[in-house]
């Protein structure tokens, strides 16, 4: 189809301008055949692009999985060696084996499973509520300038305020109930999500908005089809930080506020071990809290972020 039209267009040159073409030498080479042009352009395209090579599974294993494992194993070995060589008081410096035993005991008694499910459920639920609250709030603040001038600094300030500070107030308001825990989690996570979204929207290149307008998008579709997707990297960074704040706030709330109708979470387990002066148990719980944080990051946020950045060409293959 394109060939036909192109041929038709070339025709008048050959018929009506035949003598002219013979006079001007450039006319002979200037009308490149369509197929010629296609191959010429395809050749240049090939020269100017590099195939995007995804790193091999083995390379990814050796560059990103192996180093932290090696480090942790080295740490454990050093710890065990210290115990064996220096022989400190076991109640002040338990060995890695003691900690593993403590974890095993907690598992057998069912406390570990109960604590992890309770805390994860609260953490995830609290985080999701924070997303639902923070996203529209962030969009509103990013797009409505007067509102942002009024509320923006306070939200930024709230991000700096340690959310543990809300625990006493929450206990007075809500008593020792789940509401206290959720309140503290929300106060920790919402400002991060809001700030992440605002930063993301601020970094949307103005020409993308302009293109959206030129293509005929009204304010609603501009936000949905251009601004929000363009702000996604900042938003995901905000979500990631929001999760971190949720988890930290949750632990703080669980450690401080125990009893009442508040269930048994990982924080409560930590506090219980402290009361029993069970250092192995305390260390085991700390490791557990750390492991859950790392696991959520590795299983959920890291792949999400990597996929998004790679799609946008913001991540060099092989880097990170």
């Amino acid at each position: 189809m394109p060939r036909d039209t192109a041929d038709l267009l070339v025709e008048p040159v050959e018929t009506t301008e035949a003598d002219l073409a013979s006079i001007r030498p450039q006319a002979a080479y200037s009308t490149t055949e369509p197929d010629d042009f296609r191959s010429l352009e395809a050749g240049l395209d090939r020269l100017q692009t590099d195939p995007d090579r995804a790193p091999s599974a083995w390379k990814r294993f050796t560059t990103s999985v192996l180093p932290p494992i090696v480090f942790v194993v080295a740490l454990l070995v050093a710890w065990q060696l210290y115990i064996v060589i220096a022989q400190p008081r076991p109640d002040l410096a338990p060995s890695p084996l003691d900690v593993v035993t403590a974890i095993g005991q907690a598992w057998e008694s069912g406390r570990l499973q109960l604590a992890v499910t309770t805390s994860l459920e609260r953490g995830v639920l609290g985080f999701l509520v924070a997303v639902v609250v923070g996203t529209p709030l962030g969009l509103l603040l990013a797009e409505v300038k007067p509102l942002r001038r009024a509320i923006g600094p306070i939200i930024s300030g709230l991000q700096v305020l340690p959310s543990v500070a809300w625990v006493p107030a929450a206990i007075i308001w809500f008593g020792l109930t789940d509401a206290t825990v959720y309140f503290v989690v929300l106060m920790g996570a919402v400002p991060s999500i809001v700030n992440g979204l605002i930063a993301g929207v601020d970094q949307v290149p103005p020409q993308l908005r302009r293109v959206g307008t030129v293509l005929g998008a009204g304010p609603g579709r501009l936000a949905a089809l251009v601004v929000l997707p363009a702000a996604l990297p900042g938003y995901v960074a905000g979500l990631k930080q929001g999760w971190a704040f949720s988890w930290r706030s949750l632990m703080a709330a669980e450690i401080i506020a125990t009893g009442g109708t508040i269930g048994f979470g990982v924080g409560s387990m930590l506090d219980q071990s402290r009361e029993l002066a069970d250092l192995a148990g305390v260390l085991a719980t700390i490791l557990l809290i750390l492991a859950i944080g790392i696991l959520i990051e590795l299983a959920f946020f890291a792949p999400l972020e990597r996929r998004m950045l790679r799609r946008r060409g913001l991540l060099q293959a092989g880097a990170k």
């Binding site: 240049l44 395209d45 100017q48």
Partner: peptide
Amino acid sequence: VNLADAAEKRPHELSGGM
């Protein structure tokens, strides 16, 4: 525009001219 083969590529995988 002779880009049928690059339809599924993302902008960062394309040259400036493409």
